[in-house]
Each structure stands twice: as C-alpha cells, then as structure tokens.
Simulated assay, not measured.
Amino acid sequence: MVAGQDGLDNVIRHVSVIEVPDAVRWFQGYELMITAGYSYRHSEHALVQLVEDLVCADAAALAICYSERYLGSIPECVAARANELKFPLLELPLDVKYIEIITPVMGAVINRQAQYLDSALRAHIELEHMVLKSAGPEAMVRRVAELLDVPVLLLTPSFQLRHFSSPHAADPLAGEVATDWRSALEEARPDAELGSAVLVGETNGERFAALPLGTETILLGYVLALGIAPLNAKQLLLSQCSMPLTVELLLERTRQDAVVRLQRDFFDDLFDGEMSDEVATRRANAYGMNLDGCSWVVVADIDALASQFLKAGQEQGIQKLKDGLKRLASALVDTEAEGGVVVSRSDSVVLLPRFTGV
C-alpha cells in the first residue's frame, strides 16, 4: 500500500487493465485498475492526471505492477495526490502476474454479489408472504427498515410523509426527518448498476436510496432508505422490496375504491329517501360510517368549475379539483366536526358534519 489508506472502503465491482494513455474514455466506475505504468514512464504529471481521472470516474483503486521496471519507483507527487484524494494506490512486486490479481478479486466480487442476491431474494419472499397475509403498508415498511437496519420512509405520490420506521430508538422521529422530498428526488440520479428505477441522492448531508412504487400508469408513492452507502447490498435489497410494496399499495387502493363506490351507492339511495332509519344505519355502519349525531348535510358541487376545465381541454384538472376539495373538506370536518363523514359523489363532495351540542 503506497497511499490512499483513507479510501480502503471503496467498492470494487470490476477489474480492468490500463496500458494506453487515453484510457479514461473506457472507465466504467468501481474498478480496480491495474497498470505496469509503461505509457506513463516519461511523465510524472501524466501519472498524477491518471489518478485524478480515476477518482473522477469513481474507480476503486489503482494497482501499479512492475514499477521498478518502467517507472523506477512510484513518484512522490503521485502518492501525495492519491493521499489528498483518498484514493488507494498499490504497488505490486515483479513476481505477481495480472491473472493472479484478476482471478481472486473477481471471484470475491462474484461471491459477494451472490450473497447480496440471496439476501434480496429472501427479503422479497418474506414481503410477498406479508402481502398474502394483508399485513398492510406500514407493517411492511417496518420490516424493510429492520432488514436494511436503517430508517425507511414511505411517501405519498405528492411527496408527503405517510409512514416512518426506524430499527433504532435513537433515530429521529417522523416529524424530525421532514424535508423537501420533491426537490431531493428530482435531484437524485439513477443507480447505473441496479437499474434506472433505483434513485440515489443526498439531502441534509445524508445519503438516501429511493424507489418509485407503482405501475407504468399509476404512481402509488415512494419508498426511501436513509443512510445507505452507494453500491452496497442494502440498495439491492431495497430494489427487491419494491414489488411486494407496490402490490400491497395496489390492493389497498382497490379496497379503498370499493369502499368509496359502496359509500356513493349508499348516499344515492339515502338521498332518494326510500330507506328506513334502521336500514340506513345498518348500511352506514357496514361501510365504516357512523351517522349518529350527523344532523347536517353539506354538498359542495364543482359542476360550474368542471365545465370551465372541459372547455379548456383540461380534463385532468377536474380530478385534481375534486381531490383537493375532498382533502379540504376532510380537514375541515376533522378539525371542526370530529367524527363526521366525507364522501365524493360524481362532481360533488358530501359532508355530514357532527357538531356536538347542536
């Protein structure tokens, strides 16, 4: 070891050989680079530049073989620059052949990847079983946090925090990890090794890995793991957790949509006035609605605004308006008339607020 001891935790995924001066164009990243230094024998500056290029390309380390034969020795300026950049610089003796480096290193890389895949597959199967048991998204996020041994967040499609779980009691609570996740995810970049679905980034000085959850046409949210170093087993494990989480969220949405349809049908029948109080109460309870004390009915209609959106060719704006109106109505009922009922019907939102003492 000549220099760069502070970079010994760099990840190696490949082994490559450099014997031409313009090899930078072929750098892939995370390589252990091997060279005899023949192309750099006349220029210390060129060798320093090679170290800098390797760092910029996210290489793992540089091993110089047979330095006595072509370089005489590794120049001090090269070692100094490697130390500055925390880039491992190795010197190997004349009796070491390239194949004696490449074979064991790649064998270790392949064995490590096999272990990663095995762990990821086990996690995937475990989460699939949780889906079959209808464990729910929150329970699955807790398990993912335990498997990864890092805090995990579940975000809504609008980047709002839905659930936070950490395997460590000392980690911050959900409210303390609030950040602008929209900006953080927009600035995140795909992991080239694990595929474009895995996003890696940094926020508030902490690395994270994230995955969108959903299908080609439906975005259901995001799962994020905090404090994950790039290119390690935890990223691969996280990628394998996305499908079971997506299935669970799809099932949850299907159940919610079914309840909403039943509630709409109930209100249609209720407003027709042909149900007895007993039948109305029984059906309401079956659909998760408690009508006791709800003596007021408020209907917020968006027909006029909807027609304006249609004239402007903005059909998607109608759904956004309805969703926003329901969120506003739900928040109003929760704060001013706790225990009330809010249901969407066509282009309107029906509120049955419960006012105590009225």
Score class of each variant (00 low, 15 high):
Gly221Trp: 12
Asp257Trp: 11
Ser276Trp: 11
Phe27Ser: 09
Val279Leu: 15
Arg283Ile: 05
Ala174Gly: 05
Glu128Asp: 09
Glu76Ser: 09
Val2Ala: 14
Ala80Thr: 15
Gly4Glu: 11
Phe355Ser: 13
Val78Lys: 04
Gln263Glu: 10
Glu100Thr: 13
Val55Phe: 03
Ala178Glu: 14
Gly37Val: 01
Thr281Lys: 00
Leu154Ser: 00
Thr156Asp: 10
Gln256Met: 15
Asp292Gln: 13
Met106Pro: 00
Asp347Met: 09
Leu92Tyr: 03
Thr103Asn: 10
Leu310Met: 07
Trp26Leu: 15
Tyr66His: 14
Arg13Asp: 02
Leu262Ser: 13
Ala63Met: 12
Phe271Asn: 09
Met1Gln: 14
Tyr30His: 14
Leu245Tyr: 01
Gly293Asn: 00
Leu321Ile: 02
Glu274Gln: 12
Leu249Met: 10
Ala300His: 08
Ala233Ser: 06
Leu310Val: 05
Met1Val: 13
His14Cys: 08
Pro21Ala: 15
Ala46Gln: 12
Met140Ile: 09
Asp323Trp: 03
Leu249Arg: 04
Gln263Leu: 05
Glu338Ser: 12
Pro151Met: 05
Asn10Thr: 12
Asp53Leu: 00
Leu147Met: 10
Ala312Arg: 06
Glu44Leu: 04
Ala304Asp: 14
Thr246Ser: 10
Arg162Thr: 08
Ala329Tyr: 02
Lys322Ser: 08
Thr35Gly: 12
Val177Met: 10
Leu89Phe: 00
Val51Gln: 05
Ile12Gln: 08
Ile125Lys: 10
Val78Glu: 04
Gly227Val: 08
Val55Pro: 07
Val109Arg: 01
His14Pro: 04
Val109His: 03
Ile101Cys: 13
Lys320Phe: 11
His124Cys: 08
Leu328Met: 14
Glu91Leu: 03
His129Val: 07
Arg283Tyr: 03
Ala60Leu: 06
Val260Gly: 09
Val11Trp: 02
Val349Lys: 00
Ala3Phe: 03
Thr203Ala: 11
Ser158Phe: 02
Leu71Phe: 03
Asp303Val: 03
Ala331Gln: 13
Ser276Lys: 06
Val298Trp: 02
Pro137Phe: 05
Glu278Asp: 06
Phe27Met: 10
Leu47Glu: 04
Met275Glu: 11
Pro172Ile: 04
Leu154Thr: 03
Asp22Arg: 10
Gly37Cys: 07
Ala178Ile: 08
Val141Pro: 02
Ala284Glu: 01
Leu121Gln: 12
Ala36Pro: 01
Glu138Lys: 15
Val247His: 08
Gly7Arg: 05
Val78Ile: 11
Glu252Ser: 13
Leu251Lys: 09
Glu19Arg: 10
Cys56Ser: 15
Ala312Trp: 00
Arg354Phe: 01
Leu352Gln: 04
Ala139Tyr: 07
Pro75Gln: 08
Tyr98Glu: 15
Asp269Met: 06
Glu186Arg: 12
Gly293Glu: 00
Arg81Glu: 15
Ile12Leu: 12
Arg69Thr: 15
Gly7Cys: 08
Ala135Cys: 09
Ser330Asp: 04
Leu194Lys: 00
Met106Cys: 11
Glu274Phe: 01
Thr217Ala: 13
Gln256Glu: 14
Ser242Tyr: 06
Leu245Lys: 05
Val2Tyr: 06
Ala46Lys: 08
Val358Asp: 07
Arg182Pro: 07
Thr203Asn: 13
Tyr38Ala: 09
Gly317Glu: 05
Leu231Glu: 12
His42Glu: 12
Leu90Gln: 09
Ala82Arg: 00
